[in-house]
Structure formats: structure tokens, C-alpha cells
Nucleic acid binder design. Structure first.
Lengths: 142, 142
DNA sequence: TCTTGACTTAGAGCGCGCTCGAACCCCTAG
DNA sequence: CTAGGGGTTCGAGCGCGCTCTAAGTCAAGA
């Protein structure tokens, strides 16, 4: 499979695939005799997994650590597990925070919806006095 | 309240506060006679709200739209509600995705933990053939 | 009076994760 | 034979959200 095909199948752009290889997220791909990358379908499994790590917000530098461990084989499994677990915790925290905020947002949305009892907080006119008349960009000389 | 104090109380850095004012996320603050920003505590309410929008991943450009509407007063409430609702939907979707991925991660972690039955997929040696011998950076001349 | 430290501005720089451009190569169909 | 549509490399550029620097002002305490 050439890079364009892999792009179609993986959803990554050709540019991104090359970029990922460059930085080490994707293993160096064999080239055919015209120096074109020739992929095995199995790479899709790894790309899918990377996609999931990305979805859960793992930064590339951590994916790189994972990828490096993976290339070193079975002996690194414990370490890989740890890496995933640690990120898992971070995600769980973030998830909780997200849900909290979502609740607050919902309350606020509900407040906008009802015509009478409105949330006191954020809807008052700007708490600071008004913006300076436009064009008066802090005329203090230096 | 001067900017340093606001920074302490809000958790934003002084730099960030000034940046937010510059781009319009925070209303232009009054200056005292030495040109120093003088904040009213009520600004904290707005900053807190901004923080929540940030937590739920709203890009600054959307916060700006919201802030602009807010400065225009009560008549823009419907629009603001819409803005929040739309973002709410995006977040809800993201949340679901996140939870899915977390499940998959957990399965994988569990796979690493158990010594015998391991997930077939991602633990095989790299699906591509091995990385080129180090140092052989694509010697094809151009 | 002098020092310290918090403040001011304009503008440059940074880390992240891509994204694109230039200039070139190679294969295939018409 | 030629045109088109893939592919290749290196390296620059971009959008985001800050973050920092330089050079200066100002006010309070020793």
C-alpha cells in the first residue's frame, strides 16, 4: 500500500503520515525501488491506537515514549502499562472536570431560557467600567 | 485591586491578564493616575466563567464572540444562549468519545496486567519491518 | 535620598501539532 | 512521447494560547 492509499484508509493526511514517521511515531517504512513508502495493512492497527491516544489528549511526546518502548519489545510491557495508566488517571480527572463544567453551563443555559429568574452572575453589564472610547489607544507617551 | 493581586486571586498570570485585555477577553480596565490597572473584585466572576469555558475547550475566538455579545447587554442573551448550547453539544460529543477511548485503554491496560491472555493487537513487534539501521538517513541523493 | 519591586507598553518568541511549498522523480495511459 | 498524477526530500510557515523581554515609570519603606 502506498502512502496515498494509507492516507485514505487511516484518515490521516499524507503530510501527517510523513510527519509522524519523521518524528518517530510511525516506524520507518520500507521503500520500494522508487523510494516510495510501501505499507503493510497492519500499520493501520497502530495508527488507530495512536488516534485513540490522541483523542484522550496524550501529547505526542508521550506517544513517542510509548512507541519507543513498543519497539523494544515484550520486556517493556510493564512500563507501557504504567504509561497508559498514568495517562488514564489524568483523563479521568479531566473528564470529571468537564462534566462539572458542563453542569454549570447547563444551568446557565437554562437561566437564559427561562424569561424570569435568571442567574445573577455573569449577565450583568461588564463588571469593569466601560471600554475606552474606540481609537484612544492609551495615549500615554513613553 | 492591582493586577498582581488579581493574578493571585484569579490564578492567571499577570502576563495572561494583560494579554486577555489586549485581545478583548477582559474589558479594558480603568487605570489609576499612574496608569496602573485598578480592578473591581467583580471581574473575578467573569474570569471564573472564562475559566470554565476554557476547561470545556472553547477556543478563544468563541469566547471573544461571547464577550462581545455580553458587552452589548441584555438584548443579546438569546444569541449567547445559542453559542453556549452549540458548544455544549460539541463537548457532550467529545465526552462520549473520551469515555469510549478510556474503556479501550482500560481493556488494554488490563491486558498488560494479566500475564496470560493478552490483547492481540497492539503489542506485536512493530507491524512494519524494522527501522533502518541508525545513521542511514535515506542516503538517496537529490 | 535611595532602593526595591510592582507596575507600564510594544513587540518578539515559544511549544505544539501539523501543513504547505519548492523542486524534483517515476510510472502509466493516451 | 508526453502529460498527469502519484510519489520523494528538506525546510519554512501557521494558528493557537500564551510567555517573556526590554526599557521605562512610579510609590513606599529603610
Amino acid at each position: 500500500m502506498k502512502i496515498g492509499e494509507l492516507a485514505r484508509q487511516s484518515g490521516l493526511s499524507v503530510h501527517t503520515i510523513r510527519y509522524y514517521e519523521r518524528i518517530g511515531l510511525l516506524p520507518y517504512a520500507d521503500r520500494n525501488r522508487s523510494s516510495q513508502r510501501d505499507y503493510d495493512a497492519s500499520i493501520l492497527v497502530w495508527i488507530t491506537f495512536l488516534g485513540r491516544l490522541k483523542t484522550v489528549g496524550m501529547p505526542i511526546r508521550d506517544m513517542l515514549r510509548y512507541a519507543a518502548l513498543r519497539e523494544r519489545g515484550v520486556e517493556t510491557e510493564a512500563e507501557r502499562r504504567l504509561l497508559l495508566q498514568q495517562h488514564r488517571e489524568r483523563v479521568a480527572l479531566h473528564l470529571a472536570e468537564l462534566q462539572d463544567c458542563l453542569l454549570v453551563l447547563d444551568t446557565k443555559i437554562a437561566g437564559y431560557a427561562g424569561s424570569e429568574p435568571r442567574m445573577k452572575d455573569y449577565d450583568a453589564p461588564p463588571p469593569q467600567r466601560r471600554r475606552k472610547p474606540a481609537g484612544t489607544r492609551t495615549a500615554r507617551p513613553r
